[in-house]
Design a protein around this nucleic acid. Structure first.
Lengths: 201, 201
DNA sequence: GTCTATAGGCAGATAGAC
DNA sequence: GTCTATCTGCCTATAGAC
Protein backbone atom coordinates (compact mmCIF):
# COMPACT_ATOMS: atom_id res chain seq x y z
CA UNK A 1 0.00 0.00 0.00
CA UNK A 2 2.91 2.28 0.71
CA UNK A 3 4.21 1.91 -2.82
CA UNK A 4 0.76 2.02 -4.35
CA UNK A 5 0.06 5.30 -2.64
CA UNK A 6 3.18 6.84 -4.07
CA UNK A 7 2.61 5.66 -7.60
CA UNK A 8 -0.21 7.87 -8.64
CA UNK A 9 -2.05 11.11 -8.73
CA UNK A 10 -4.08 12.72 -6.02
CA UNK A 11 -2.59 15.80 -4.52
CA UNK A 12 -0.70 15.19 -1.32
CA UNK A 13 -3.54 16.46 0.86
CA UNK A 14 -5.82 13.73 -0.42
CA UNK A 15 -3.23 11.05 0.11
CA UNK A 16 -2.69 12.31 3.65
CA UNK A 17 -6.41 12.10 4.28
CA UNK A 18 -6.51 8.58 2.87
CA UNK A 19 -3.84 7.35 5.24
CA UNK A 20 -5.19 9.28 8.22
CA UNK A 21 -8.66 7.94 7.58
CA UNK A 22 -7.44 4.39 7.60
CA UNK A 23 -5.50 4.97 10.81
CA UNK A 24 -8.47 6.52 12.59
CA UNK A 25 -10.78 3.73 11.49
CA UNK A 26 -8.35 1.07 12.59
CA UNK A 27 -6.88 2.53 15.79
CA UNK A 28 -8.79 5.69 16.69
CA UNK A 29 -7.98 9.38 16.51
CA UNK A 30 -5.87 9.29 19.67
CA UNK A 31 -3.79 6.32 18.64
CA UNK A 32 -1.96 7.59 15.59
CA UNK A 33 0.57 10.34 15.03
CA UNK A 34 1.83 12.60 12.28
CA UNK A 35 4.89 10.37 12.24
CA UNK A 36 2.74 7.38 11.26
CA UNK A 37 1.32 9.21 8.27
CA UNK A 38 4.65 10.69 7.24
CA UNK A 39 6.31 7.28 7.30
CA UNK A 40 3.55 5.72 5.25
CA UNK A 41 3.74 8.45 2.59
CA UNK A 42 7.51 8.88 2.66
CA UNK A 43 7.33 12.58 3.51
CA UNK A 44 8.27 14.46 6.65
CA UNK A 45 6.11 15.53 9.55
CA UNK A 46 6.79 19.15 8.62
CA UNK A 47 5.26 18.58 5.21
CA UNK A 48 2.14 17.29 6.91
CA UNK A 49 1.85 20.43 8.96
CA UNK A 50 1.89 22.47 5.78
CA UNK A 51 -1.29 20.75 4.60
CA UNK A 52 -2.95 20.41 7.99
CA UNK A 53 -1.52 22.82 10.51
CA UNK A 54 -2.85 20.97 13.51
CA UNK A 55 -4.18 17.53 14.27
CA UNK A 56 -7.55 19.06 15.10
CA UNK A 57 -7.65 20.56 11.63
CA UNK A 58 -6.79 17.21 10.12
CA UNK A 59 -9.59 15.61 12.11
CA UNK A 60 -12.05 18.18 10.86
CA UNK A 61 -11.03 17.60 7.25
CA UNK A 62 -11.36 13.84 7.78
CA UNK A 63 -14.88 13.93 9.08
CA UNK A 64 -15.97 16.52 6.52
CA UNK A 65 -14.76 14.36 3.65
CA UNK A 66 -16.19 11.19 5.16
CA UNK A 67 -19.61 12.74 5.75
CA UNK A 68 -19.69 14.13 2.21
CA UNK A 69 -18.78 10.78 0.73
CA UNK A 70 -21.40 9.01 2.81
CA UNK A 71 -24.04 11.53 1.80
CA UNK A 72 -23.06 10.89 -1.81
CA UNK A 73 -23.55 7.17 -1.29
CA UNK A 74 -27.06 7.80 0.00
CA UNK A 75 -27.79 9.90 -3.06
CA UNK A 76 -26.54 7.06 -5.23
CA UNK A 77 -28.87 4.64 -3.49
CA UNK A 78 -31.78 6.97 -4.13
CA UNK A 79 -30.75 7.34 -7.77
CA UNK A 80 -30.72 3.58 -8.20
CA UNK A 81 -34.45 3.73 -7.71
CA UNK A 82 -34.99 0.57 -5.64
CA UNK A 83 -37.90 0.14 -3.25
CA UNK A 84 -37.63 0.68 0.49
CA UNK A 85 -36.42 -2.83 1.39
CA UNK A 86 -33.79 -2.62 -1.36
CA UNK A 87 -32.63 0.76 -0.08
CA UNK A 88 -32.28 -0.55 3.45
CA UNK A 89 -30.27 -3.46 2.16
CA UNK A 90 -28.03 -1.13 0.19
CA UNK A 91 -27.61 1.02 3.28
CA UNK A 92 -26.47 -1.93 5.38
CA UNK A 93 -24.06 -2.86 2.61
CA UNK A 94 -22.32 0.49 3.04
CA UNK A 95 -21.38 -0.61 6.53
CA UNK A 96 -20.47 -4.08 5.40
CA UNK A 97 -18.02 -2.74 2.87
CA UNK A 98 -16.27 -0.65 5.50
CA UNK A 99 -16.00 -3.66 7.76
CA UNK A 100 -14.63 -5.68 4.86
CA UNK A 101 -11.46 -3.59 5.10
CA UNK A 102 -11.36 -4.41 8.79
CA UNK A 103 -12.24 -0.83 9.59
CA UNK A 104 -14.72 0.65 12.00
CA UNK A 105 -17.06 3.35 10.71
CA UNK A 106 -15.06 6.57 11.04
CA UNK A 107 -17.92 8.27 12.83
CA UNK A 108 -18.62 5.31 15.08
CA UNK A 109 -14.96 5.39 16.11
CA UNK A 110 -15.09 9.12 16.74
CA UNK A 111 -18.31 8.67 18.70
CA UNK A 112 -16.40 6.47 21.14
CA UNK A 113 -13.72 9.14 21.47
CA UNK A 114 -16.25 11.96 21.61
CA UNK A 115 -15.04 13.43 24.86
CA UNK A 116 -11.56 13.97 23.48
CA UNK A 117 -12.58 15.64 20.21
CA UNK A 118 -12.30 19.31 19.27
CA UNK A 119 -15.64 21.07 19.52
CA UNK A 120 -15.97 21.60 15.76
CA UNK A 121 -15.50 17.90 15.10
CA UNK A 122 -18.09 17.08 17.74
CA UNK A 123 -20.85 19.02 16.06
CA UNK A 124 -19.98 17.67 12.62
CA UNK A 125 -20.18 14.19 14.07
CA UNK A 126 -23.70 14.73 15.39
CA UNK A 127 -24.71 16.12 12.00
CA UNK A 128 -23.49 12.93 10.39
CA UNK A 129 -25.80 10.82 12.52
CA UNK A 130 -28.65 13.29 12.09
CA UNK A 131 -28.33 13.07 8.31
CA UNK A 132 -28.25 9.29 8.36
CA UNK A 133 -31.28 9.09 10.57
CA UNK A 134 -33.13 11.59 8.44
CA UNK A 135 -32.47 9.66 5.26
CA UNK A 136 -33.42 6.37 6.88
CA UNK A 137 -36.58 7.83 8.38
CA UNK A 138 -37.74 8.84 4.91
CA UNK A 139 -37.03 5.42 3.50
CA UNK A 140 -38.85 3.77 6.39
CA UNK A 141 -41.85 6.06 6.10
CA UNK A 142 -42.15 5.53 2.38
CA UNK A 143 -41.83 1.78 2.84
CA UNK A 144 -44.56 1.78 5.42
CA UNK A 145 -46.85 3.78 3.14
CA UNK A 146 -46.50 1.18 0.39
CA UNK A 147 -47.04 -1.65 2.84
CA UNK A 148 -43.63 -3.18 2.18
CA UNK A 149 -42.31 -2.28 5.61
CA UNK A 150 -44.03 -2.76 8.93
CA UNK A 151 -43.13 -1.10 12.22
CA UNK A 152 -44.84 0.85 14.95
CA UNK A 153 -44.13 4.32 16.24
CA UNK A 154 -42.19 7.22 14.70
CA UNK A 155 -40.00 6.32 11.73
CA UNK A 156 -37.30 8.50 13.23
CA UNK A 157 -37.08 6.30 16.31
CA UNK A 158 -36.78 3.19 14.18
CA UNK A 159 -34.15 4.92 12.06
CA UNK A 160 -32.13 5.56 15.20
CA UNK A 161 -32.29 1.91 16.16
CA UNK A 162 -31.09 0.92 12.69
CA UNK A 163 -28.09 3.23 12.83
CA UNK A 164 -27.20 2.24 16.39
CA UNK A 165 -27.54 -1.47 15.69
CA UNK A 166 -25.41 -1.37 12.57
CA UNK A 167 -22.72 0.65 14.33
CA UNK A 168 -22.82 -1.74 17.28
CA UNK A 169 -22.66 -4.77 15.04
CA UNK A 170 -19.55 -3.34 13.37
CA UNK A 171 -18.01 -2.47 16.70
CA UNK A 172 -18.21 -6.04 17.90
CA UNK A 173 -17.76 -7.98 14.66
CA UNK A 174 -14.43 -6.29 14.00
CA UNK A 175 -12.54 -7.65 17.03
CA UNK A 176 -13.79 -11.12 16.11
CA UNK A 177 -12.62 -10.55 12.55
CA UNK A 178 -15.91 -12.11 11.55
CA UNK A 179 -17.83 -10.54 8.69
CA UNK A 180 -20.56 -13.14 9.10
CA UNK A 181 -21.32 -11.82 12.56
CA UNK A 182 -22.21 -8.48 11.05
CA UNK A 183 -24.15 -9.99 8.19
CA UNK A 184 -26.34 -12.10 10.45
CA UNK A 185 -27.11 -9.09 12.61
CA UNK A 186 -27.92 -6.88 9.63
CA UNK A 187 -30.13 -9.56 8.10
CA UNK A 188 -32.06 -10.03 11.32
CA UNK A 189 -32.45 -6.31 11.79
CA UNK A 190 -33.88 -5.75 8.32
CA UNK A 191 -36.05 -8.86 8.48
CA UNK A 192 -37.75 -7.35 11.50
CA UNK A 193 -38.80 -4.37 9.40
CA UNK A 194 -40.12 -6.13 6.32
CA UNK A 195 -43.87 -6.68 6.35
CA UNK A 196 -44.82 -10.33 6.72
CA UNK A 197 -46.89 -11.82 3.94
CA UNK A 198 -50.35 -11.40 5.41
CA UNK A 199 -52.26 -14.64 4.92
CA UNK A 200 -55.85 -13.51 5.45
CA UNK A 201 -57.58 -15.97 7.77
CA UNK B 1 -14.66 13.43 43.55
CA UNK B 2 -11.00 13.99 44.19
CA UNK B 3 -11.65 14.65 47.86
CA UNK B 4 -14.22 11.89 48.12
CA UNK B 5 -11.72 9.41 46.79
CA UNK B 6 -9.23 10.36 49.45
CA UNK B 7 -11.65 10.20 52.34
CA UNK B 8 -12.23 6.53 52.61
CA UNK B 9 -11.11 2.98 52.54
CA UNK B 10 -10.30 0.83 49.57
CA UNK B 11 -6.67 0.00 49.15
CA UNK B 12 -4.88 2.23 46.71
CA UNK B 13 -4.95 -0.35 43.92
CA UNK B 14 -8.73 -0.29 43.95
CA UNK B 15 -8.89 3.48 43.89
CA UNK B 16 -6.48 3.51 40.99
CA UNK B 17 -8.70 1.09 39.13
CA UNK B 18 -11.76 3.21 39.90
CA UNK B 19 -10.20 6.31 38.38
CA UNK B 20 -8.66 4.48 35.45
CA UNK B 21 -11.96 2.80 34.69
CA UNK B 22 -13.75 6.11 34.56
CA UNK B 23 -11.08 7.57 32.31
CA UNK B 24 -11.21 4.65 29.87
CA UNK B 25 -14.97 4.71 29.72
CA UNK B 26 -15.03 8.45 29.10
CA UNK B 27 -12.01 8.97 26.83
CA UNK B 28 -10.62 5.61 25.83
CA UNK B 29 -7.56 3.63 26.80
CA UNK B 30 -5.27 5.66 24.55
CA UNK B 31 -6.45 9.04 25.76
CA UNK B 32 -5.41 9.04 29.39
CA UNK B 33 -2.07 8.87 31.15
CA UNK B 34 -0.60 7.82 34.45
CA UNK B 35 -0.32 11.53 35.19
CA UNK B 36 -4.11 11.89 34.96
CA UNK B 37 -4.68 9.19 37.54
CA UNK B 38 -1.90 10.40 39.81
CA UNK B 39 -3.31 13.93 39.80
CA UNK B 40 -6.81 12.71 40.57
CA UNK B 41 -5.62 10.61 43.51
CA UNK B 42 -2.97 13.00 44.75
CA UNK B 43 -0.16 10.49 44.45
CA UNK B 44 2.81 10.33 42.10
CA UNK B 45 3.26 8.46 38.87
CA UNK B 46 5.93 6.35 40.54
CA UNK B 47 3.41 5.15 43.10
CA UNK B 48 1.15 4.06 40.27
CA UNK B 49 3.91 2.02 38.71
CA UNK B 50 4.35 0.20 42.00
CA UNK B 51 0.78 -1.09 41.80
CA UNK B 52 0.63 -1.56 38.03
CA UNK B 53 4.06 -1.80 36.51
CA UNK B 54 2.90 -1.05 32.99
CA UNK B 55 -0.13 0.45 31.34
CA UNK B 56 -0.83 -2.89 29.68
CA UNK B 57 -0.95 -4.49 33.12
CA UNK B 58 -3.33 -1.82 34.32
CA UNK B 59 -5.53 -2.43 31.30
CA UNK B 60 -5.62 -6.14 32.02
CA UNK B 61 -6.62 -5.52 35.64
CA UNK B 62 -9.33 -3.13 34.48
CA UNK B 63 -10.99 -5.52 32.10
CA UNK B 64 -10.67 -8.44 34.52
CA UNK B 65 -12.42 -6.53 37.26
CA UNK B 66 -15.08 -5.17 34.90
CA UNK B 67 -15.85 -8.59 33.45
CA UNK B 68 -16.08 -10.12 36.92
CA UNK B 69 -18.42 -7.39 38.10
CA UNK B 70 -20.60 -7.77 35.02
CA UNK B 71 -20.75 -11.53 35.47
CA UNK B 72 -21.81 -10.92 39.05
CA UNK B 73 -24.60 -8.65 37.86
CA UNK B 74 -25.87 -11.42 35.58
CA UNK B 75 -25.83 -13.85 38.50
CA UNK B 76 -27.83 -11.32 40.52
CA UNK B 77 -30.41 -11.08 37.76
CA UNK B 78 -30.73 -14.85 37.73
CA UNK B 79 -31.04 -14.90 41.51
CA UNK B 80 -33.89 -12.38 41.38
CA UNK B 81 -35.89 -15.10 39.68
CA UNK B 82 -37.78 -13.02 37.12
CA UNK B 83 -39.09 -14.44 33.86
CA UNK B 84 -37.28 -14.08 30.55
CA UNK B 85 -38.75 -10.67 29.60
CA UNK B 86 -37.90 -9.35 33.06
CA UNK B 87 -34.36 -10.62 32.75
CA UNK B 88 -33.92 -8.97 29.38
CA UNK B 89 -35.19 -5.72 30.82
CA UNK B 90 -32.81 -6.00 33.76
CA UNK B 91 -29.98 -6.70 31.33
CA UNK B 92 -30.70 -3.57 29.33
CA UNK B 93 -30.80 -1.62 32.58
CA UNK B 94 -27.20 -2.60 33.26
CA UNK B 95 -26.25 -0.65 30.16
CA UNK B 96 -28.56 2.20 30.99
CA UNK B 97 -26.94 2.67 34.38
CA UNK B 98 -23.49 2.89 32.81
CA UNK B 99 -24.73 5.48 30.34
CA UNK B 100 -26.30 7.40 33.21
CA UNK B 101 -22.78 8.27 34.36
CA UNK B 102 -22.07 9.45 30.82
CA UNK B 103 -19.78 6.50 30.33
CA UNK B 104 -19.44 4.07 27.47
CA UNK B 105 -19.35 0.37 28.30
CA UNK B 106 -15.72 -0.36 29.14
CA UNK B 107 -15.65 -3.29 26.76
CA UNK B 108 -17.44 -1.43 24.00
CA UNK B 109 -14.81 1.28 24.26
CA UNK B 110 -12.01 -1.27 24.19
CA UNK B 111 -13.66 -2.96 21.22
CA UNK B 112 -13.26 0.26 19.26
CA UNK B 113 -9.59 0.41 20.24
CA UNK B 114 -9.08 -3.31 19.69
CA UNK B 115 -6.19 -2.95 17.27
CA UNK B 116 -4.14 -1.04 19.80
CA UNK B 117 -4.66 -3.39 22.75
CA UNK B 118 -2.16 -5.84 24.28
CA UNK B 119 -2.87 -9.40 23.19
CA UNK B 120 -3.96 -10.55 26.66
CA UNK B 121 -6.53 -7.78 26.88
CA UNK B 122 -7.83 -8.70 23.45
CA UNK B 123 -8.69 -12.23 24.38
CA UNK B 124 -10.27 -11.20 27.66
CA UNK B 125 -12.40 -8.75 25.71
CA UNK B 126 -13.72 -11.45 23.41
CA UNK B 127 -14.48 -13.63 26.42
CA UNK B 128 -16.56 -10.81 27.86
CA UNK B 129 -18.76 -10.72 24.79
CA UNK B 130 -18.88 -14.51 24.61
CA UNK B 131 -20.11 -14.69 28.20
CA UNK B 132 -22.75 -12.04 27.63
CA UNK B 133 -24.01 -13.75 24.53
CA UNK B 134 -24.07 -17.10 26.27
CA UNK B 135 -26.10 -15.78 29.16
CA UNK B 136 -28.51 -13.98 26.84
CA UNK B 137 -28.90 -17.01 24.61
CA UNK B 138 -30.02 -19.06 27.60
CA UNK B 139 -32.52 -16.41 28.65
CA UNK B 140 -33.85 -16.16 25.11
CA UNK B 141 -34.16 -19.91 24.71
CA UNK B 142 -35.96 -20.32 28.00
CA UNK B 143 -38.30 -17.46 27.12
CA UNK B 144 -39.10 -19.04 23.80
CA UNK B 145 -39.84 -22.36 25.46
CA UNK B 146 -42.41 -20.75 27.76
CA UNK B 147 -43.94 -18.84 24.87
CA UNK B 148 -43.16 -15.47 26.39
CA UNK B 149 -40.56 -14.63 23.79
CA UNK B 150 -40.84 -15.04 20.05
CA UNK B 151 -38.03 -15.05 17.53
CA UNK B 152 -36.77 -17.18 14.69
CA UNK B 153 -33.43 -18.86 14.25
CA UNK B 154 -30.67 -19.67 16.74
CA UNK B 155 -30.95 -17.95 20.12
CA UNK B 156 -27.22 -17.28 19.94
CA UNK B 157 -27.65 -15.15 16.82
CA UNK B 158 -30.40 -13.13 18.46
CA UNK B 159 -28.26 -12.74 21.56
CA UNK B 160 -25.52 -11.27 19.40
CA UNK B 161 -27.92 -8.76 17.93
CA UNK B 162 -29.04 -7.74 21.40
CA UNK B 163 -25.49 -7.15 22.63
CA UNK B 164 -24.49 -5.31 19.45
CA UNK B 165 -27.58 -3.13 19.44
CA UNK B 166 -27.25 -2.13 23.08
CA UNK B 167 -23.56 -1.33 22.63
CA UNK B 168 -24.34 0.69 19.50
CA UNK B 169 -27.17 2.53 21.19
CA UNK B 170 -24.80 3.54 23.98
CA UNK B 171 -22.12 4.53 21.53
CA UNK B 172 -24.40 7.01 19.81
CA UNK B 173 -26.59 8.17 22.69
CA UNK B 174 -23.57 9.30 24.67
CA UNK B 175 -22.38 12.04 22.27
CA UNK B 176 -25.93 13.37 22.21
CA UNK B 177 -26.01 13.29 26.00
CA UNK B 178 -29.46 11.84 25.59
CA UNK B 179 -30.46 8.98 27.85
CA UNK B 180 -33.87 8.86 26.17
CA UNK B 181 -32.23 7.92 22.90
CA UNK B 182 -30.89 4.79 24.49
CA UNK B 183 -34.11 4.00 26.29
CA UNK B 184 -36.21 4.21 23.15
CA UNK B 185 -33.80 1.93 21.33
CA UNK B 186 -33.71 -0.60 24.16
CA UNK B 187 -37.49 -0.59 24.45
CA UNK B 188 -37.95 -1.17 20.74
CA UNK B 189 -35.36 -3.90 20.72
CA UNK B 190 -36.99 -5.83 23.57
CA UNK B 191 -40.50 -5.23 22.24
CA UNK B 192 -39.45 -7.03 19.08
CA UNK B 193 -38.66 -10.14 21.13
CA UNK B 194 -41.75 -10.34 23.30
CA UNK B 195 -44.44 -12.64 21.95
CA UNK B 196 -47.52 -10.78 20.75
CA UNK B 197 -50.77 -11.64 22.48
CA UNK B 198 -52.08 -14.24 20.07
CA UNK B 199 -55.76 -13.59 19.46
CA UNK B 200 -56.89 -16.95 18.08
CA UNK B 201 -59.01 -16.30 14.99
C1' DG C 1 5.45 22.14 -1.36
C1' DT C 2 8.85 19.76 0.94
C1' DC C 3 12.81 19.77 3.47
C1' DT C 4 16.28 19.95 8.00
C1' DA C 5 16.50 21.09 12.45
C1' DT C 6 14.72 21.85 16.69
C1' DA C 7 11.78 23.48 20.28
C1' DG C 8 8.99 22.31 24.35
C1' DG C 9 6.24 19.17 26.47
C1' DC C 10 4.38 14.89 28.02
C1' DA C 11 4.41 9.92 27.57
C1' DG C 12 5.59 5.45 30.05
C1' DA C 13 8.99 3.74 32.89
C1' DT C 14 13.04 3.12 36.41
C1' DA C 15 16.46 3.88 40.45
C1' DG C 16 16.94 4.44 44.87
C1' DA C 17 15.88 7.20 49.29
C1' DC C 18 12.57 7.18 52.99
C1' DG D 1 3.88 2.03 49.75
C1' DT D 2 5.06 6.41 48.39
C1' DC D 3 8.33 9.63 47.41
C1' DT D 4 12.03 12.65 44.38
C1' DA D 5 14.55 12.67 40.56
C1' DT D 6 15.54 11.34 36.19
C1' DC D 7 15.71 8.80 31.70
C1' DT D 8 14.52 8.02 27.04
C1' DG D 9 11.56 8.53 23.54
C1' DC D 10 7.76 10.28 21.02
C1' DC D 11 4.41 13.81 20.58
C1' DT D 12 2.60 18.19 18.16
C1' DA D 13 4.21 22.15 16.34
C1' DT D 14 7.35 25.92 14.42
C1' DA D 15 11.33 28.40 11.99
C1' DG D 16 13.54 29.01 8.13
C1' DA D 17 16.36 27.05 4.03
C1' DC D 18 15.61 25.26 -0.57
Amino acid sequence: MSSAARTRDGNTAERILDVAEQLVQERGFNAFSYADIAAELGITKAALHYHFASKAELGQALIDRYAARFAGALTDIDAAGGDAPARLHAYADLYLNVLRDQRMCLCGMLAAEYRTLPEAVRSTLLEFFDDNEGWLAEVLESGRSTGQLAFTGPARDVARVVVASLEGAMLIARPYGDLGRFQVAATQLLAGLVAKASSPS
